[in-house]
Design a protein around this nucleic acid. Structure first.
Lengths: 141, 141
DNA sequence: GAAGATTGATCGATCAATCTTT
DNA sequence: AAAGATTGATCGATCAATCTTC
């Protein structure tokens, strides 16, 4: 009962904090690489997956809906960052330019994430945050 | 334990979790109220401030830049949700329709936030999260 | 026909340039 | 001149409708 009144306030703080930190990191990376945030998100996720994913799995991993991802992949395909291949759904892969780009940008991203995010938290905070994020994405509303 | 190379991974998880939870909450509220997420964010913040704020303070509280807020306020003013008044900067206030709307929607928002966010965390998680969000927004990089 | 994907239209976000007020 | 605000253009996100493949 005691957290009821402050619930929306914590929600607002969570959103605002995410927005501010995100902007700090994204501004550094996009300034350095000529990539938008969604470009980065897609490249990072594909890279983590080894370079190839089914489009539906890529979308699920990022929490994006189909339309948004379809438009985004279309744009990135036109710029030569990705390739699309049909057959039992669609498979998306890093093209050569995409592979080079993500490898060039990852150190910048890692550095920005460390300075604006990780370094502001202690080890116990990071552990606690992992637990919190895990609980938030568990099923059962 | 060590968090070595997983910094960007935690960053990705934080972003994805935020995106998913945000979508769950926002979809419920917008379906019920005919308001977009930015509409809601502005109305909630103004309501929390008593109904009136200077535009620059409103933007700072949400982490928005001037341009974004100016466009948003223009749209909401046209729909009769807000009023704008000049003089030593700009002062934004809830119009009658905005006041009625936010009061009608707050219970729905509170309910959605509780089910998709607060109820998934324990008391100690909530305390830890407050500390984490506070540290992330402290100055000094 | 159901799940996955695409398209076109509309609305929101961002960038660069400009205007206003102190 | 500097801070705050606005405007117009462009790019990204969202919605509804449609198409494809199994």
């Amino acid at each position: 009962m005691s957290t009821r009144a402050s619930g929306v306030e914590l929600w607002s703080t969570w959103k605002r904090t995410h927005e501010v930190i995100r902007a700090l990191v994204v501004n550094e990376v996009t300034a350095a690489a000529g990539l938008s945030e969604p470009d980065m998100t897609v490249l990072v996720r594909l890279h983590e997956a080894g370079g190839t994913l089914r489009q539906s799995e890529l979308g699920a991993a990022m929490g994006w809906d189909r339309t948004r991802l379809s438009h985004q992949v279309t744009r990135m395909e036109k710029r030569g960052l990705l390739t699309r291949r049909r057959g039992d759904g669609v498979t998306v892969a890093l093209a050569a330019a995409g592979r080079e780009t993500i490898q060039a940008v990852l150190p910048t991203l890692g550095d920005a994430v460390r300075r604006h995010f990780l370094d502001k938290l202690g080890e116990s905070d990071l552990d606690a945050l992992r637990v919190i994020l895990d609980r938030l994405t568990r099923e059962g509303s």
